[in-house]
Design a binder for these strands. Structure first.
Length: 338
DNA sequence: ATCGTAACGGTTGAT
DNA sequence: GTATCAACCGTTACG
């Protein structure tokens, strides 16, 4: 059970344990970093732990993506469509073939290797569920498998996958196709859950307004951005409901190397401009757009005026940065090119 | 003071 | 429908 309002970290920022920071915050982190602001200052300004800032920036530098990795799920399925197709073929050629024989043939024919070879029980399940209602064959297989031995457990070595239907790449979560796009805040999948702080808090995003008000050319991106952040006023019964169609929940395309590729991405320059923070809750304002993420007392640089942690615009970020570092001129970056 | 990272407790989703 | 598992998350603390 998640806390209804998240938790507050040592910096006064709000987070939901186990859940990623909102994309807007992640983008802000990268933006500020690209403005030359030091990670420690970003951490204080956005009230995100420096470990998190470090992690996000490291990931961004490595992959070009600001997005969190794919949370949850199991190991990639070994029963890929190709494997199923071959199993079907084997079964059609020899209706009496046993599951363990199919398994051997998959290996012998090079359809699978030892790392992604389905277990006998998996093949039996495929024969039973996918190949057709060959009940007599299933029955026969069952008896034959019993003679051959107990069904094998899950593959012992299936941690290595070289086929395309794996779930989103784990250690390298971002699609290689967009990994090195400079200045892109690559978005490679839809925000995965309704359990974001935003959803929990039910704070309306300005993005929704932007969809209605913005120019049509940005509609699709904004719509995607809206779906990514999926802001809506949740009721308690609404919190756990997926807000997007399950079929469209993940827009990524699996790549042959097991990594995911997105069908689209969001440039920071396509996002709405930053607004002044909109305090949507007496407890905190937490909008997954670029607008507001305010909790607790506003942090101030040691020798400066007050800055809003998430609501500052680029100029204030720059002023902040200029206070923090004197070497900014070498990193002149504008928001439009981020 | 800053940064990288392991440990931790948590969530998620496929099986 | 539930349990398991392994991925991820951000925070915290330590060096």
């Amino acid at each position: 059970m998640e806390p209804a309002f998240g938790e507050v970290n040592q910096l006064g920022g709000v987070f939901v344990n186990g859940r990623p920071l909102p994309n807007a915050i992640r983008i802000r982190i990268v933006e500020l970093a690209q403005l030359g602001i030091r990670p420690c200052d970003i951490s204080r300004q956005l009230r995100v732990s420096h470990g998190c800032v470090s992690k996000i920036l490291a990931r961004y530098n490595e992959t070009g993506s600001i997005l969190p990795g794919a949370i949850g799920g199991s190991k990639p399925r070994v029963t890929t469509p190709t494997v199923v197709r071959h199993i079907r073929t084997y079964k059609q050629r020899d209706p009496g073939i046993f599951a363990w024989e199919i398994r051997d043939k998959l290996l012998a024919d090079g359809v699978c290797d030892k790392f992604n070879l389905p277990s006998v029980s998996s093949i039996s399940r495929i024969l039973r569920n996918k190949i057709g209602t060959l009940s007599h064959l299933s029955h026969r297989e069952g008896s034959k498998e019993a003679a051959h031995g107990t069904p094998q457990p899950a593959l012992p070595c299936n941690h290595i996958y070289s086929y395309p239907t794996s779930i989103a790449g784990r250690k390298v979560p971002s699609p290689p196709g967009m990994a090195t796009l400079p200045g892109h805040m690559a978005v490679h999948r839809i925000w995965p859950s309704s359990h974001s702080v935003t959803d929990i808090l039910g704070i309306r995003s300005i993005t929704e307004q932007a969809i209605g008000e913005g120019p049509p050319v940005h509609g699709s991106r904004l719509e995607e951005w809206s779906s990514i952040n999926r802001i809506h006023f949740s009721t308690s019964s609404d919190v756990d409901k997926p807000h997007v169609d399950p079929e469209t929940k993940y827009t990524q395309v699996q790549m042959p190397n097991g990594l995911s590729r997105v069908s689209s991405c969001v440039r920071v320059s396509s996002l709405p401009p930053y607004h002044t923070p909109t305090q949507a809750s007496p407890y905190m304002g937490y909008s997954t757009t670029s607008t507001g993420y305010v909790a607790g007392p506003i942090w101030q640089p040691p020798n400066s005026s007050t800055l809003s942690p998430h609501g500052c615009d680029i100029s204030s970020a720059l002023s902040f940065k200029s206070m923090s570092s004197a070497s900014e001129n070498s990193h002149r970056v504008t928001a439009s090119v981020l």
